[in-house]
Amino acid sequence: EQLARLKREFNENRYLTERRRQQLSSELGLNEAQIKIWFQNERA
């Protein structure tokens, strides 16, 4: 579920704002660094 949600977010926007990253962190139970790194890896 977390992965599917991250992929949906990535398809909508390849870059997250700090606020959006905080929201996802709270909703998915991941820390902000994990989300940031995931997005960086997807863009690579």
Rank of each mutant, 00 (worst) to 15 (best):
R20T: 06
N31Y: 04
G29C: 05
Q40D: 14
W38F: 11
K7V: 08
N13L: 07
Q34G: 01
W38H: 02
L24M: 03
F39S: 00
F10E: 02
A33N: 13
Y15E: 11
K36W: 13
Q23D: 08
I35H: 00
S26M: 15
F39R: 00
T17F: 03
K36S: 15
T17P: 05
E42N: 05
G29E: 04
F39T: 00
L6P: 00
A4C: 14
T17V: 04
S26D: 11
N11P: 00
T17A: 05
L28W: 03
S26W: 14
L30Y: 02
R21I: 15
A33I: 12
Q40C: 08
R5S: 05
L16Q: 03
Q34E: 13
N41T: 09
K7M: 10
Y15R: 07
G29D: 05
L16V: 06
A33K: 10
N13W: 08
R21P: 02
T17W: 05
L16G: 02
L30H: 02
S26Y: 14
Y15W: 13
E32C: 05
L16Y: 03
L28I: 12
Q22M: 12
N31L: 10
E1Q: 10
N31W: 07
Q22E: 07
F10T: 02
L24H: 01
R14I: 07
A44Y: 10
E12M: 11
Q23W: 12
Q2D: 05
E9R: 06
A44P: 03
E27M: 08
Y15T: 11
W38I: 04
S26V: 15
R5L: 06
G29T: 02
N11C: 15
Q34K: 06
L3E: 08
I37R: 12
I37A: 14
Y15H: 12
A44C: 14
A4Y: 03
Q23A: 11
R21L: 15
Q2A: 13
A44V: 09
N11L: 14
E9H: 05
Q34V: 14
L16C: 06
Q2V: 15
E12D: 09
R20D: 04
L6Q: 01
A44G: 05
E42T: 05
A44R: 11
N11A: 15
L30S: 00
F39P: 00
E42A: 13
L6K: 02
W38Y: 06
R5T: 05
I35G: 00
F10D: 02
R21S: 15
F10K: 02
E18K: 15
Q2T: 12
R8K: 13
E1P: 06
L24F: 02
N11Y: 12
L24T: 00
T17R: 06
L16E: 05
A4S: 06
E12C: 14
A4M: 11
Q22L: 12
E1M: 09
E12G: 04
R8V: 07
Q34Y: 15
Q23G: 04
R20A: 08
R14Q: 13
A4D: 08
L30P: 01
E32R: 04
R8M: 11
Q22V: 12
R20H: 06
I35Y: 01
L6E: 01
R8A: 13
Q22I: 10
A44F: 09
Q22C: 11
L28V: 06
R21Y: 12
A4P: 03
L6H: 00
Q22T: 08
L16M: 05
Q2L: 14
N13M: 04
N13D: 07
S26P: 01
Q2G: 04
E27F: 05
I35D: 00
R21Q: 13
R14K: 11
E32T: 07
E12P: 00
R19N: 11
L6T: 02
S25W: 04
I37K: 12
Q22N: 06
G29Y: 02
L24P: 01
T17C: 11
L30I: 11
E12I: 12
I35E: 00
R5E: 04
K36E: 15
L30C: 09
I37V: 09
R14W: 08
E9Y: 07
L30M: 14
K36G: 12
E27G: 02
R14Y: 04
Q34D: 14
Q40M: 10
N31K: 08
F10P: 02
R5V: 09
Q40S: 08
E1S: 10
S26L: 15
Q2K: 09
L16F: 04
Q2I: 15
S25T: 04
A44I: 12
E18A: 15
Q23R: 11
L24N: 01
R20N: 04
Y15K: 07
N11E: 14
N31S: 15
W38R: 01
R20C: 07
L6R: 03
L28P: 02
E1V: 07
E12L: 12
A4K: 08
S26N: 12
E9A: 14
R8N: 06
A4I: 08
S26Q: 15
E12Y: 08
E27H: 06
A33L: 14
I35K: 01
E32G: 05
N11D: 13
I37D: 12
A33Q: 13
Q40W: 08
R5Q: 06
N41Q: 12
R43H: 09
E32V: 11
E32S: 08
E1G: 10
E27P: 01
Q22P: 02
R8P: 00
T17I: 02
S25L: 09
R5G: 04
L3M: 08
W38K: 02
Y15A: 06
Q22W: 08
F39N: 01
N31P: 15
R21E: 05
R5N: 03
L30D: 01
E18Y: 09
L16N: 03
I37Q: 13
N11I: 11
I37E: 13
N11Q: 14
E12Q: 13
R43L: 14
F39Q: 01
E9T: 03
I35R: 00
E18W: 07
A44E: 13
N41W: 10
E18S: 14
L24G: 00
F10I: 03
I37C: 14
L6S: 03
N31M: 08
Q34I: 15
E9G: 02
S26C: 13
R43Y: 11
Q22R: 14
Y15C: 14
R43C: 10
I35M: 03
A33S: 12
I37W: 14
L16I: 10
